[in-house]
Design a protein around this nucleic acid. Structure first.
Lengths: 339, 339
DNA sequence: GCTAGAAATGGGAACGTTCTCATTTCAGCT
DNA sequence: AGCTGAAATGAGAACGTTCCCATTTCTAGC
């Protein structure tokens, strides 16, 4: 790879001038600029981002960090696409860390990203009191949280109205005539989980449906957990007529168990999931779901982060996006049984 | 963030000595080492990777590039996990570029990664004659291709025996009694596609089944394309009794169309897909598939890449992994119709 | 106690940029 | 032609490391 100096030599100018041309500074004679540009073209020169980053600490590192709990979850894949789309368009690189719900791995990524001199960080905290992220903020890095915030810390957040989303799901089921509605929740320590539980409870109580605590199962927020808990639900003496699964992975896990036990959806049991997938219609029957746009979340978080980077004094903002109930065919109306 | 110099000052030694301690060089008195380590702990010092990378060009940049065609495809997500798992364990960072099947975006990522001073690159070429990757190789970067090689270029490759995999799929269908077997292929320009088509043809001809060219559909290797082509197949005057879809996304797309047209799997049509997913059992019925381990591919590619980095003279190797036929319930045996 | 040689430490250049400051060039005016 | 001030260019420090080489400190043998 050729360097600034190579270009300077070839164009018979100084390094400074070449730098000026590259950064589009105005004080260069058109003729000189031309000479330099031709040299750049000939040598196929590309600025070394590492050197740029080292030199101009905290101004134009052009690198964003993105730390996610689980890249196997299609929702986070959407987030990645949203972030990348916006970032690269603005000439920022993105370094992704996927910590697989493992807090020590999260810590490692956070440290690595800091020592890579990122300009800022987008992260979905592993839980509401994530000290490692707080430390990053203390260190002075601009941080935007997605999907979930940080309890007791004033930080920018881009998320979705989880409670309203869950509320809509449960209200939909209730209006369909369901009363025995199970909820497989996310990991209990994640704020998102609590909000979705709150939405569940709110809808139940609004419609005067008593909550059977046996029907609320706390999960580990993964596929296996969804499958296991669904099995527990089906084995209950008084099993649910409908399930609300708190995320993608849980939905898929529950689906597996339901199919394996030979139950038909929606005839024998209805299911509605938080998180939609682009291939939800490939499920049989197509899944009814609460949709949140990971791509929008990623894009907006990146926009805010870039603003924070250019204007560090900016007051923190909290963006709450709406969810959407996508009715497909995994829930059916219950004829009311006279008790 | 504190620097080497800060540590040196606090420990009352020179920068060189601190550097020695960090890099575990032997020539440091135990007492000195202790002093330095305590200073490091107090200051919470972490080496700046950017400076390290700039200084020691081509020796310990500790950064790998990973460029993928489509992060929405669960197969590549597995690859990411395989690469990350191995790389971070060896103290390498990974910078991921997802080019969404867009060659110009691929070019952009390749350029960015080079200017980030990566030590090496793992990439799934957009097609067999990918000039951008050839350029990276010319520039002297160690490169390992995954999933597909480069035609006419001697490069390390880690892939799967696509032809054998496809052969196994088709032979399985034939043994089940199918004769009208459709194949929705991947993008025609990708070597992988051709190999899978070859497997299809090989199995058909081995068992004396004539190929109906109307049943072979070239796709764009995405979800929509799978759905569209499946529809074309179903509308044929003489539709297939079984389909072999060449990858994940196509399978999902085909599934959507089949469900929408009210056909039952496997009673009305059988389907077998290349690529398994961890949630294949959540499909209804659970999908019969040819499994390839993205994680293994990622891990092995990383192993090879790290070897290439330490020993650039290393001769190129080509690793071909086996696929596995996972029989579930999306294909049924056909009672032979007397024609 | 002196010296040789090894062990331990320090000094400073280099990596490829950016950016401040100094210097040169040039156009426009008398 | 000579002068002025703006425009254009150049020189060189700095970013945080590594690593070569020089210097200092130590150990052991006489």
């Amino acid at each position: 790879m050729s360097t600034l100096k190579d270009v300077a030599d070839k164009a018979q100018v100084s390094v400074s001038t070449v730098s000026r041309v590259i950064n589009n500074e105005p004080l260069v004679k058109p003729k000189t600029r031309e000479k330099v540009e031709s040299a750049i073209a000939q040598l196929n020169y590309m600025p070394n981002r590492v050197a740029q980053r080292l030199r101009s600490i905290n101004t134009k590192n052009k690198l964003l960090g993105l730390v996610l709990p689980d890249i196997q979850n299609p929702f986070y894949v959407d987030v990645v696409r949203g972030v990348e789309g916006f970032a690269y368009q603005r000439n920022f690189s993105v370094m992704i860390g996927n910590f697989d719900q493992d807090e020590s791995k999260e810590k490692m990524f956070l440290e690595i990203l800091q020592s890579e001199s990122i300009d800022g960080l987008i992260v979905a905290p592993s839980h509401g009191r994530d000290q490692h992220i707080e430390k990053v903020i203390e260190n002075g890095y601009p941080v935007v949280c997605i999907d979930r915030g940080l309890i007791g810390t004033d930080v920018d957040v881009v998320k979705v109205n989880n409670q309203a989303g869950a509320f809509a799901a449960i209200e939909y089921l209730i209006k369909l005539g369901h009363r025995k509605i199970a909820h497989i929740t996310g990991h209990p320590q994640i704020p998102t989980t609590m909000e979705r539980v709150a939405g569940y409870e709110q809808a139940m109580s609004k419609h005067g449906v008593a909550i059977d605590s046996a029907l609320v199962k706390n999960s580990q927020s993964n596929y296996q957990s969804g499958a296991d808990l669904m099995l527990e639900l089906l084995r209950l003496p008084n099993p649910p007529t409908a399930v609300f699964t708190a995320n993608n992975l849980l939905t898929l896990g529950a689906l597996k168990t339901i199919h394996e036990s030979g139950l038909r959806i929606p005839e024998d049991i209805s299911i509605i999931g938080f998180d939609d997938m682009y291939w939800s219609m490939s499920l049989n029957p197509p899944l009814t779901a609460i949709r949140q746009s990971g791509q929008d979340i990623g894009r907006i978080a990146t926009e805010i982060l870039l603003q924070k980077i250019t204007d560090p004094g900016r007051s923190t903002s909290s963006v709450v996006l709406d969810t959407e109930l996508i009715v497909r065919r995994s829930c059916k109306a219950l004829e009311l049984v006279v008790g």
